[in-house]
Nucleic acid binder design. Sequence first.
DNA 1: GGTTAGCACTCTACACACGAGAGTGCTAAC
DNA 2: GTTAGCACTCTCGTGTGTAGAGTGCTAACC
Lengths: 372, 372
Amino acid sequence: MVRRSRPTADPLDARSLAILRAVIEEYVVTATPVGSQALVERYRLGVSSATVRAILADLEDAGLLTHPHTSAGRIPTDAGYRFYVEALAEAAPLPAVEQLMIRHQFGQVEHASEHWFRLAATTLASVTGSAGLATAAKPDAARVRRIDLVGLQDRLSSLILVLREGTIKQQLIVLDRSVDQADLTRIVNQLNAELVGETAMEIEARLPALAAADAINSAADTGASTDSDSRLQLAALLYRVAERIARTMAEFDAAAVEEVYSDGLLNVMDAPEFAQSEKLRRIFGALENRLVLGELLRIVAGSGRIHVFIGHENPTVEMREVSLILAPYGQPGRAVGVVGVLGPTRMAYRHAIGTVGFVSGLMNELVDHLYA
Amino acid sequence: MVRRSRPTADPLDARSLAILRAVIEEYVVTATPVGSQALVERYRLGVSSATVRAILADLEDAGLLTHPHTSAGRIPTDAGYRFYVEALAEAAPLPAVEQLMIRHQFGQVEHASEHWFRLAATTLASVTGSAGLATAAKPDAARVRRIDLVGLQDRLSSLILVLREGTIKQQLIVLDRSVDQADLTRIVNQLNAELVGETAMEIEARLPALAAADAINSAADTGASTDSDSRLQLAALLYRVAERIARTMAEFDAAAVEEVYSDGLLNVMDAPEFAQSEKLRRIFGALENRLVLGELLRIVAGSGRIHVFIGHENPTVEMREVSLILAPYGQPGRAVGVVGVLGPTRMAYRHAIGTVGFVSGLMNELVDHLYA
DNA sequence: GGTTAGCACTCTACACACGAGAGTGCTAAC
DNA sequence: GTTAGCACTCTCGTGTGTAGAGTGCTAACC
């Protein structure tokens, strides 16, 4: 009774904590409300079910547990999970064997960095049994590493833009008139000479200078096109390409999230809480919507630590029934991405946090290697 | 009675056809079994419900309709839909307004061909209300259009391989020792001189010749590295890069489907026949599995016409409860991709076929423009 | 002979009742 | 402070009854 009226701010005694923990870990496995009797049977609590019932009632008063109806067992609230994650659940490190296997898999695709993100999502999905998420590492402001123009046909060519972080952008450019590869090469050389290392804004600022008709001169003096008319046209093309480069990079910079790789959404579908596909639809819808994830990822990317969003803690309404565990990777200021896991709030947090931590560490190593 | 014992091969009279058509079109809209009374009320058939019942029984004998239980209305069988698609449903051309809107959208992303496929899937999804699918145009055997090596840092460089069909492949190459950009450029020039236009197999065949230590000579004579030791090392690197190019292209050729873009899977989830998510899971699983789709797409890609797979007609078990409408686009022999729609067998076939036809035609135009 | 009204029949869907079982909260005794 | 006992509550599965939809058959009709 006295316990009953205790303010919820009181620290919980060790036995209460043990029981809270038992309820959560039992519920995570069984997905059915946990009763007092089940607890005394399966955990060596050393007290009777009646005592456990009293404690469960306390934990419910404290807002950490609830029960769906009078004669059902207890299930954790979001606050209960939060308490568990903060105070009770040290992250479970991934077993060495699994670590090795994952490293091995990344070794297999090492030469194709675009596959890292996909593999990260797949790995997280299969190891945690939830859905895995990953975004490519993306810089605050992209910088040019290399520009190339490849003639596709008479009056169509392809601009290939390599950014310093490894991303490649391709754009078609329709030419006003036929331009041979030698002239394209001349333009490319000049663009590379002028623009490598620049950001979208810096290129923008240089555009007026490039617009000057004689800008092409320094490149043209090695070449064959001597008539000033074609020289003028080349200068115009160079300007157009530079403009396109600036715009493409600006768009890239503006996109909150370039692309979200996900895998194992089926795992989430399997969870009994999503048996009626209604809830699921909203979640899938939110995932298809880049903005929702972009918002979340932005929060995480800046922080440098693992974030756990439990149910209603999620900033977006659609995600109120799931939990997200997200961790950034990469080099702050250069390029940052996020990896993580999405699952029902009833999730094996210890294991999931450990796994996300390991994978983000691994991605860190890979990115470090790239920018040594 | 006489009608009852008629062999199913008999051609159906016009009235039976009209009723079959009415049943299908009604069922597609309502998703509930269609009864004789509903038919006479909603379609001007000019006969009583009893007569309609007799005809429905005939159509059922012919295998075109069925009913879930004695006192339920009729629903079409897969054979019924097949008959409808073949004999009753001329494709409904897309309204001019919608055509214009779609063209406009494609115009917006025209300069970034990678987005075409995504947009095709999105468009198909939103116009048909089913799930939209698209694959990038993929050649039988890729050919090199351009090779580039970009130094990322001291002993790491990135191989950028542009294929003639516009696909770009990126691979990381770890160098044994530091190589400056000038040397990389020399290698790139030689590789471009030797390998542009070649297929994976042709490059493979040339590897022995490239392995000869003096292969780099023709490029080296313009340059600065004179000592034969570094020349040897460059030759070795050139060989490694060429080998990597061959392998990357061979892998690209081998993959049945590079990537399947899909959109609007949520639309399918909304269909009442998939209210219990069990069926859906299998379908989603099949979609995640590239092989299943690869199999289908290969059938379609060769044919040059729109394919309709209805329910059990699908070659893969998982797809037995859905229909697929797929059409190839591109240039046979050069690069072919597939666009299409996935939905419940209860699908608005006329509209879907018309839409898929339009989008595949549009993609054809775009690809033609690329290879004029 | 094809068509139709009438009718018996079948099956589903829904509502309702009922009992078993699980789990609780309270109380009195230890 | 802990525990056994007990009344109470609520869910869930099962069984029953009924309304409604739709069928197939038959006899009458045009």
